[in-house]
Amino acid sequence: MYTFLRFVALLFFFGLACFYLVTIPRTLPEETMADLTGDATRGEQVFWAGGCASCHSAAEAEGEERLVLAGGRPFATEFGTFYAPNISPSDAGIGGWSQYDLANAMMRGVSPGAQHYYPAFPFTSYTKADPQDIADLHEFMQTLPASDTPNTPHDVSFPFSIRRVLGGWKLLFFREDWALAEAPTEQVERGRYLVEALGHCAECHTPRNALGGLDTDRWLGGAPSPDGRGSVPNITPGGLDWSEVDIAAYLKSGFTPEFDSAGGEMAEVVQNMSNLTDDDLAAIAAYLKAVPPVEPPAN
C-alpha cells in the first residue's frame, strides 16, 4: 500500500514537472530585433494591415479616435469574455515596451512579464510577421495618443483561467508555417504575407475545433461568427466568385460588386484596409484566388 501511494505521488509530481516544462512561455531569441531601426511612416501601413484599431480602439470610435488604442472592447467567446487591453503609449498601456517586448507579444504571444497571452490576440498570425515590420510598427505606435484607461481583466472560465494552460494550447495549435506553402508569384507571396500574417483574416474566416485551434484543412472556408450571430463567409474560390478587381475594390470602398456594403466587423476591417496601397489590395485579391477552394457544406 505504502509503495503504491509513493508511486502515485511520484507520478503526480512527474506530471506536474512535465506540465511545467511544456508550458514555459517561450520568447524570441534576443538577437531577433537587434540592429533594427523602426520607421514610423512604414509602421503606419503595418498598423492598418494588422488591423490593430479594430479591437483596441474604443467601441464606437470614428475617425481620429480610432488611433486612441485605449482598449476595453468585450469579445464574447465560448471560453469566456475577453477585453482588449490598452496598447496606447502610456503607463496604462505599452508605453514602456521595447521593440523586443512588442515582438515577443506579437510573434510568441508572451508578455514582458513572461505570461502567455490568450489567442484572442492573433499572435498565431502575427508570428509570421517580418521583424522589421514589428520595429516599424513599434515606432509608429509611439506617435499615437496616450490613454490612461485601465485594463479590464478577462472573464474566462476554468481551466482556461490558468494562463499556464495556454502553453499546452500553443504546443497543439501554434504553427509558424504558411497555410499556402507555395506562392506562385511575388504578388501572391505579398498577398500571403498580408492575409496570413498581418491581416490575420483566417482568425475569423477559418473554422475552429472544440479547443479553439484553426481547422487548416478548411483554410478561409468560412466559419460561424465568434459572437454566435450569423456566419463569416467562405472567401476561397469555392465560396467567392468575385474578380480580383472586385475584391480589391471591396477592401478599398466597402462596396460589393452588387453595391451592397460591408456590415459588422467587416465594415471595421474595410476602414483599416482602405488605408493600404492599391498594390497591396491587389496582392490580397491575388492570394485569395490562389488558395485551394473549400467547397461549401452541402445542405
Binding site: 466597402g254 460591408a262 465594415a267
Partner: peptide
C-alpha cells in the same frame, strides 16, 4: 465624393448590421 458615401453606408452597417 465616393469615399465619404461608402463611409456613410458603413456608419450604419458597422454598428447595426451583422457581418456575413
Amino acid at each position: 465624393a465616393m469615399g465619404a458615401l461608402g463611409g456613410a453606408c458603413g456608419g450604419c452597417h458597422k454598428a447595426y448590421r451583422a457581418s456575413d
